[in-house]
Design a protein around this nucleic acid. Structure first.
Lengths: 327, 327
DNA sequence: TTGTAAGCGTTATCAG
DNA sequence: CTGATAACGCTTACAA
């Protein structure tokens, strides 16, 4: 015995004794409507529990109030926190979010993008540490605005929100240099194909000119497995691009009775909640991850509505939390 | 100098020299189309780089091939892994996913639901540990199918995918009983308003009839702060409903020189990647989280297409990984 | 096997 | 301030 159908704008107009156009006006709060009619319409809407059909609206207005969010992996807490920030601001601006997990896989990424296009999203927030050139070109060809959140566009000229990686990694290098010599310090990062790790390297080398650079994936195992090489090479301190491999390295040290931080220091970079859950707790660059997501989405709203944007390349402040893996 | 507009089905039909209907038929692969015409149409589609407009399609067919995914918190790895499973299967079946973070907040949850309704999603995968009665009623009133993923519907009769929590927690209790007496064993869980913690309690009490039960939130701090009470009460082993508070408890013990597992044992329940990152690594029930998500989504596809479903209440197998917080 | 045409629920452009 | 009415791009009987 449930309602046969969702009520339409037509039902509302009939009940309120006005035209479709008028209902549309009050729903969208645009155009002048006499206070009395507005009230009538609102009443009918409430009584019928009317809810505008987003598809019809989208079709007619060619605006979907939906944004695409592309993310490589939700189980990476760094991305998850960005996503929370994005979602929160999307809610505020009444955008719904179409999620696409791209798996750092160019094919999946391309398909995700295509899907978003056929959904006619009004904009895209792109998160990705491994952006391929192909993906990048695709994004560049987007008919709707794209913002890179916590990710660097290769030519650095697309809208993006980040911290100053160069400075952060230079500072991190300087911290380790307080007790170690250049040759004892290394950077561990996933080079990927994005510009992000290039910036990190740049900053690192600014501080530690003779520093060694190791490659790792973004996962725990990868760090764990890399660790013995570090020891063999006489490395005494590392700066790691992601928290999971940082913890992998830490645990290798603990499992092999290397004293942290006395004999080995670690600075990580993402400050996800992971870093406070280990013992010793991991020292890290702190990033305003939620804010990076939030600001990205806010930037996107501006871009979507054609508002002027002073600088589409936003840099948010970072800090350091020196816990127990540094001296 | 870019294309003025996205090509429409009309452009394709014109170029291929056939009618709209025919193009629609080949695009949707339904109805008979002569091989030759099909080829022509496909050619035109490719040349024009035509992409069906999801909104128009949805409007006309009242199917959106979009599902809603409601999740309380993406930075909870348990949820994130479920979400990955959901997303993966959604991709396979060509559904797009509309994400809604509900923040365990009834108001936000209600709004999220309303948004999904106006988007006319074809179905909903609901993730939530704190489902309020109100939310539950709302979900029950949904005109489209809803599947509870890793969450228990209060009356236990709505479609859901879970492990057997009663059994799992009974087994966990038995494990601790090998070295401890009933009064030394406790359950730490977030009771919330959902049926899930009730099942856990039930299983726990089956094994540890005099066991004490403590309440905590789902976060690290909450566990850390609770820990001293456990010690004061002479508790020597706990089963914890979530990984983060479990690790909170662990770290409190470590920080206060309580020997784990010798003087205090911990079994957690979600087996997120967190549990292998601590030292000692946390023993835990292992849940097939990705699969819970995947099966939920698969179940939803069946429900959405009206396929017969043998049993809408799916139980997936769990196991135990006894690491270093148990004897 | 293919084409015609009537919707689907809105918005938006004109008149009034 | 309000009302007709033509799109929006596609699906789906119904014809042919």
């Amino acid at each position: 015995m449930s309602e046969n159908k969702q009520p339409t704008i037509y039902d509302v107009s009939e009940r309120a004794g006005v035209s479709l156009a008028t209902v549309s006006r009050v729903v969208n709060n645009n155009g002048k409507v006499k206070e009395e009619t507005r009230r009538k319409v609102l009443k009918a809407i409430k009584e019928l529990n009317y809810r505008p059909n987003a598809m019809a609206k989208g079709l007619a207005s060619s605006k979907t109030t939906m944004v695409g969010m592309m993310v490589p992996d939700l189980t990476d807490l760094y991305f998850a926190e960005l996503a929370q920030g994005i979602d929160a601001v999307a809610k505020i601006y009444n955008y719904s979010v179409s999620l696409s997990v791209s798996d750092n896989n160019p094919t999946a990424g391309k398909e995700a993008f295509e899907t978003l296009m056929s959904q006619h999203v009004d904009g895209i927030v792109y998160i990705g540490n491994q952006t391929s050139q192909e993906m990048f070109d695709l994004l560049k060809s987007s008919p709707v605005p794209v913002v890179f959140a916590g990710s660097v566009a290769q030519d650095g000229k697309l809208p993006s929100v980040n911290i100053d990686y160069v400075q952060a990694f230079q500072q991190a290098g300087n911290i380790l240099k307080q007790h170690l010599s250049d040759t004892q310090i290394a950077l561990v990062d996933n080079p990927g194909e994005s510009g992000l790790s290039a910036l990190r390297q740049q900053g690192f080398l600014k501080a530690v000119s003779k520093g060694k650079i190791y490659e790792s994936e973004d996962d725990y195992r990868s760090g764990y497995n890399l660790a013995h090489h570090l020891l063999e090479d006489g490395i005494k301190g590392v700066i790691v691009g992601e928290d999971e491999p940082a913890i992998g390295i830490l645990n290798y040290m603990l499992d092999n009775h290397v004293q942290v931080p006395n004999d080995f220091q670690i600075i990580s970079s993402n400050d996800t909640k992971l870093v406070k859950m280990t013992r010793p707790a991991v020292s890290s660059v702190t990033q305003p991850k939620f804010d990076i997501g939030a600001v990205s989405m806010r930037l996107l709203t501006k871009l979507m509505s054609g508002d002027p944007v002073d600088d589409p390349t936003v840099i948010l402040p970072h800090e350091f939390v020196l816990k127990d893996t540094t001296l």
